[in-house]
Amino acid sequence: MEQAGNDEVIVVGGGVVGLTTAVVLAEAGRRVRVWTREPAGRTTSAVAGALWWPYRIAPRALARTWALTSLAVYEELAERPEETGVRLVDGVLGGTSLDELGDWAARVPGLRAATADEYPGTALRARLPLIDMPVHLRLLQDRLLRAGGAIEERTVTDLAGVRAPVVVNCTGLGARSLVPDASVRPVRGQLVLVENPGVRDWIVATDPVAGTTAYVFPQPGRLVLGGTTDEDDWSLAPDPDAAAAIVGRCAALRPELAGARVLGHRVGLRPVRDRVRLERTERPDGSVLVHNYGHGGGGVTVAWGCAREAARLADPTAAR
């Protein structure tokens, strides 16, 4: 592969983690190029439901720190929702209590126990960032370009062939073959987009018996209904039976959704790992490789925190 300039950083991967990392690096004055196999609009990030919440992501303590860093950024971006795609929206998280959370929860705006009128069971009420990912990904691309960065569509088949003083690996599920790291695996998520009959708040509910999750996220011009967690399933084709089940579970939460006109279907493969890999390694030629992958369905939640840590690790003066 092409040799990069002596002071360049190449970020491999153009999803939300890769773009956010590239933005942090470029806005800090680094010369950054993003190498991505496909445009951001066709990545897994583009189809994410994108509610901020540190859920099923490890290591837990670090993930919460990364999440709170991201929360502060999203709160600022929410002041310009049309431009950034970020809004602060009220909603209910079913099946979770305050006792299950740590001290970090005090930082979450409006977080409290939900009332019986709000949810029939244990639940939390909060005002959280809800992100319109197509808009947000365009924002990240624009910020990167304004900071002097570049985005190139190219397929990387071997990380060793990416030659630069610093390479940041944000390839998500691609890390399974590129590192290679067999511990990265897909967890398939299917969504249904429907017309919004007037739903303004989000809701997430888990059935502990059936092991299913239902969520309703109001996005501009549509409702996003989910979802599925199909482990080790590589299929990107929407399953009609799964779609019908999603709509049924969501209509049980919000009866006004019964019969809502379907606008489309989306499928994404979450890059799940037992814990996020965020670390620096030295390559035989003296260059630096920073890994930043394995975020599962929490990439949006921790993106800015992980990006800042990755940028620190990418600093040539960082401790070895």
Score class of each variant (00 low, 15 high):
residue 11 V to Y: 04
residue 12 V to M: 11
residue 12 V to G: 01
residue 12 V to R: 05
residue 14 G to Q: 04
residue 14 G to L: 04
residue 15 G to C: 11
residue 15 G to S: 12
residue 15 G to E: 08
residue 15 G to L: 10
residue 17 V to L: 15
residue 18 G to R: 11
residue 18 G to I: 11
residue 19 L to G: 12
residue 19 L to Q: 15
residue 21 T to R: 13
residue 21 T to E: 13
residue 23 V to I: 14
residue 24 V to F: 03
residue 24 V to Q: 12
residue 24 V to T: 14
residue 25 L to P: 02
residue 25 L to Y: 00
residue 26 A to M: 05
residue 27 E to G: 07
residue 28 A to V: 06
residue 29 G to H: 10
residue 31 R to H: 14
residue 32 V to P: 13
residue 33 R to F: 00
residue 33 R to T: 15
residue 33 R to P: 06
residue 33 R to Y: 00
residue 34 V to T: 06
residue 34 V to R: 07
residue 34 V to W: 07
residue 36 T to E: 14
residue 38 E to P: 02
residue 39 P to Q: 04
residue 39 P to M: 04
residue 39 P to D: 10
residue 40 A to I: 08
residue 40 A to P: 06
residue 41 G to C: 05
residue 42 R to G: 05
residue 43 T to D: 09
residue 44 T to P: 04
residue 44 T to D: 12
residue 44 T to C: 13
residue 45 S to P: 13
residue 45 S to M: 12
residue 45 S to I: 13
residue 46 A to V: 09
residue 46 A to W: 11
residue 46 A to S: 15
residue 46 A to C: 08
residue 46 A to P: 10
residue 47 V to Q: 10
residue 48 A to R: 13
residue 48 A to F: 10
residue 48 A to I: 11
residue 48 A to E: 03
residue 49 G to N: 09
residue 50 A to F: 08
residue 51 L to Q: 04
residue 51 L to H: 00
residue 52 W to G: 02
residue 52 W to E: 04
residue 53 W to S: 07
residue 53 W to T: 05
residue 54 P to S: 01
residue 54 P to F: 01
residue 55 Y to V: 10
residue 55 Y to M: 05
residue 56 R to K: 15
residue 57 I to E: 08
residue 57 I to M: 09
residue 58 A to T: 14
residue 58 A to L: 14
residue 59 P to N: 01
residue 59 P to S: 02
residue 59 P to F: 00
residue 60 R to F: 03
residue 61 A to R: 15
residue 61 A to Y: 03
residue 62 L to P: 00
residue 62 L to E: 15
residue 63 A to G: 06
residue 64 R to T: 01
residue 64 R to W: 04
residue 66 W to Q: 10
residue 66 W to R: 02
residue 67 A to T: 04
residue 67 A to S: 15
residue 68 L to D: 05
residue 68 L to I: 09
residue 68 L to S: 08
residue 68 L to K: 10
residue 69 T to C: 08
residue 69 T to K: 02
residue 70 S to D: 12
residue 70 S to Y: 12
residue 71 L to H: 03
residue 72 A to T: 08
residue 73 V to M: 01
residue 74 Y to A: 05
residue 76 E to T: 03
residue 78 A to R: 01
residue 79 E to Y: 00
residue 80 R to E: 14
residue 80 R to S: 09
residue 80 R to I: 03
residue 82 E to A: 15
residue 82 E to I: 07
residue 84 T to W: 05
residue 85 G to S: 09
residue 85 G to D: 09
residue 85 G to K: 05
residue 85 G to P: 12
residue 87 R to Q: 15
residue 87 R to F: 00
residue 88 L to R: 14
residue 88 L to I: 15
residue 88 L to K: 05
residue 88 L to W: 03
residue 90 D to R: 14
residue 90 D to I: 01
residue 91 G to M: 06
residue 92 V to C: 06
residue 92 V to L: 07
